[in-house]
């Protein structure tokens, strides 16, 4: 079976010349379908850069990235936006919901860009909200929701297109303990139902939920703990 993620010799350089910053220095990583990976590392180690590239939010300077067997190396912006829409669900540390827009509309957003019809869109968005336990908050705007609720809306948005992978960049970084537990519970359930999850974290107890922990040091994978 093809791995969901296959990364070889990934490099990312910011700037040029003497001031160039090497965020990734030839990183290799393979993620199999159904895995739950926690990426850990000191700040500046390149783990966020890695996740942004995995989410097609950024492009590598060198190296290959195969997502679901598709080589993304020479994809143009138009094709990348299609990948982001169909294959990837991204959860951010700072939630990143569209302000002044209801939870339901936020969850529907990827489906709009996917060209899904209104009725089906609403049904799928409501189903995703139900999965994160927020059916009764569907008409609320982000500023009327707690941090934990906002993050759950963001997870629903990441799930609604049934992506190949769910990527999460420190999803519990801005949450209190109770909300963190809820959010991690959702990821656990997602993984249990067969979805591939890759998340970044600083905390060992978060990483404990994962099936595998990848340590990134200085832009390379340092060690794998099972």
């Amino acid at each position: 079976m093809t791995p969901v993620i296959e990364v070889e010799g990934l490099r990312k350089v910011y700037g040029a010349g003497d001031t160039a910053v090497h965020a990734l220095r030839g990183l290799d990583l393979t993620v199999q379908r159904g895995e739950y990976i926690a990426i850990m590392g000191a700040s500046g180690s390149g783990k966020s850069t890695l996740l942004n590239i995995l989410g097609c939010l950024d492009v590598p300077s060198a190296g290959t990235y195969r997502l679901d067997g598709i080589d993304t190396s020479d994809f143009a912006e138009q094709q990348l936006s299609l990948l982001r829409n169909r294959k990837i669900g991204f959860v951010f540390q700072s939630f990143n919901l569209v302000p002044r827009t209801t939870a339901l509309a936020n969850v529907e957003l990827p489906l709009v860009y996917a060209g899904v019809r209104r009725a089906e869109r609403k049904a799928r968005a409501l189903a995703a909200l139900e999965l994160v336990g927020l059916t009764d908050r569907s008409t609320h705007r982000p500023n009327e929701l707690s941090g934990g609720q906002q993050q759950r809306v963001a997870i629903a948005r990441a799930l609604v297109t049934s992506p190949a992978i769910v990527l999460a960049d420190e999803p519990t970084g801005n949450l209190d303990t109770d909300s963190s537990r809820e959010v991690l519970g959702i990821f656990d359930r997602l993984n249990a139902s067969g979805r591939t999850v890759v998340l970044i974290t600083h905390e060992d107890d978060v990483a404990a939920h994962a099936t595998r922990t990848v340590r990134v040091v200085d832009g390379r994978v340092a060690g794998v703990l099972v």
Partner: peptide, 9 residues
């Protein structure tokens, strides 16, 4: 945000 969820240019 819109681009991250797949909005084309």
């Amino acid at each position: 945000i819109r681009k991250a969820v797949g909005a084309p240019r």
